[in-house]
């Protein structure tokens, strides 16, 4: 498929049809794997996961220049976009208390419970091996659903410092997990 020709054809004939086609191609290539991935972070809420995948695909289509990247980079970007959509959704849900998810949804997840717990212990170990400064910023941002700025205020350090520690902390964590064969 030639994206330039496709783009021109879209302009000259029917933009809607071309857009539909591109979105269909995106779904075909990434939809399935993305849905499996997103379901893990929506507590197996399938409807929510499908909405997240749909929004991710539409966002990818809007940034069509990025679709010229190599597939493994597109995939990494799609995962990141989808995660952000899930996080934003969770933040919105948490300000409406009556819609709080039942806490035991995870029980319905993939039935390899012991394997998961083992893997979780490896991650917990890796986190404990980090320096105090690195572990702290990972805990105060991602693990507590807080932004860099929110965590900076709580920790009493500049946002730039949080961002920088997070970078080196995540790199260190990545190395530890790779050594333990958890992160590919």
């Amino acid at each position: 498929m030639c994206p330039v020709l496709g783009h021109l054809a879209g302009k000259l004939e029917s933009t809607d049809a071309e857009a539909e086609h591109r979105i269909a191609v995106l779904y075909q290539e990434f939809g399935g794997p993305l849905l499996r991935h997103v379901r893990k972070s929506t507590g197996n809420d399938l409807q929510w996961a499908e909405d997240v995948v749909q929004e991710t695909i539409v966002r990818a289509w809007r940034h069509s220049a990025r679709l010229q990247w190599e597939p493994s980079l597109i995939w990494a970007w799609l995962l990141t976009v989808a995660r952000r959509i899930v996080i934003d959704g969770r933040r919105r849900k948490s300000v409406r208390p009556h819609e709080v998810e039942p806490p035991e949804v995870d029980m319905l997840a993939v039935p390899d419970g012991s394997e998961r717990a083992l893997s979780a212990m490896v991650v917990a170990d890796a986190l404990r091996s980090l320096s105090e400064e690195h572990r702290e910023v990972i805990e105060q941002t991602y693990l507590r659903d807080r932004t860099i700025n929110e965590a900076a205020e709580i920790l009493g350090i500049p946002p730039g410092t949080v961002k920088s520690r997070l970078y080196y902390g995540i790199r260190a964590l990545r190395v530890l997990l790779r050594d333990k064969g958890v992160a590919g």
Partner: peptide, 12 residues
């Protein structure tokens, strides 16, 4: 890209 999923495992 896969690090957040690894961190999510802590919830299990």
């Amino acid at each position: 890209a896969e690090i957040p999923s690894r961190l999510d495992e802590l919830k299990h």
